[in-house]
């Protein structure tokens, strides 16, 4: 157990140290979220009606942060796939280290990068007019929910990254699988503006549940069951995909 913790920290540190040396990844965490936020607010913002919100940036920011943080895990998909194809997983497996630490350290590093991109989005949002309507406790609760949700999606991406054959396909499969999910939700537009079949899907979509919970926590929007629902969804996703990722890791790495 002690080794699990210390080895996890070593692997997490390794993944964070290498990040600034891969400029494309660093851009994905810094410039890209700012770009999306500004494009949505200033290009679509004027055309989207969001009853109950004083302006579009208030409505959008929780949604775009949730989308962004769900995608934070794609570094895990690409990174694990690279480690596998370049033989680093073999190296790790030949060492007397804790075996789950390879995945645990990888996903832990995502929490740090997710916190970074969340901060960047939040600061940008506050600059262009986003205002909290909540106490410190609710704001902190929202941050915790975001980081947990991002962590759960790291396991989804870990599973995807170990399934596919190359880092490139890890990237595109992850994008194709998750991108529509984030759009057919309440993240960017009110759900009742969609055609009815999509509405049905959007309302059941965990993204909608989490985004609504964020709006409840940060903006005092009516929450219904969505705050509890959001935490439940987060743990359900983790409970399904963490064991799946571990199972695929074991067989992908050589059947042990």
């Amino acid at each position: 157990m002690k080794r699990l913790v210390s080895d996890t920290l070593v692997i997490a540190e390794r993944n964070l140290v290498r990040l600034p040396r891969a400029p494309d990844l660093l851009l994905a965490f810094t410039v890209q979220p700012i770009m999306f936020l500004l494009l949505f607010v200033y290009v679509f913002g004027g055309a989207i009606v969001t009853p109950g919100y004083s302006n579009y940036v208030d409505f959008l920011l929780p949604g775009i942060i949730v989308q962004n943080i769900a995608f934070g895990g794609f570094v895990t998909a690409v990174g694990l796939n690279e480690d596998l194809s370049k033989g680093l997983i073999d190296r790790f497996r030949s060492l007397p280290m804790s075996r789950p630490a390879v995945l645990a350290g990888r996903t832990l590093a995502d929490v740090a990068t997710n916190a970074l991109s969340m901060t960047i989005l939040l600061v940008t949002g506050l600059t262009i007019g986003f205002r909290f309507d909540a106490g410190l406790l609710e704001i902190a609760g929202g941050v915790v929910l975001l980081l947990l949700f991002g962590y759960a999606f790291s396991w989804v991406f870990a599973w995807l990254g170990l399934l596919v054959s190359s880092p490139e396909s890890a990237n595109s499969v992850g994008f194709i699988a998750v991108f529509p999910l984030t759009f057919i939700s309440s993240a960017f537009v009110p759900v009742d503006s969609m055609p009815s079949a999509l509405q049905w899907f959007a309302e059941a979509n965990p993204f909608t549940v989490v985004v609504d919970a964020m709006r409840a926590l940060w903006l005092g929007a009516p929450a219904g069951n969505s705050i509890w629902g959001a935490f439940v969804w987060t743990f359900v996703i983790m409970a399904i995909f963490a064991p799946l990722a571990v199972a695929v890791y074991r067989s992908a790495a050589g059947g042990k």
């Binding site: 390794r14 370049k86 033989g87 073999d90 030949s94 060492l95």
Partner: peptide, 30 residues
């Protein structure tokens, strides 16, 4: 704990320096 393995692929982390690679492996040996 008794063995060392060097494979066909030269399994080093390309984004880490030589020193960082070796230090990481040492720490993973405990």
């Amino acid at each position: 704990e008794q063995i060392g393995l060097a494979g066909q692929y030269a399994a080093v982390d390309e984004n880490l320096t030589g020193r960082e690679n070796l230090t990481m492996v040492g720490r993973l040996y405990g």
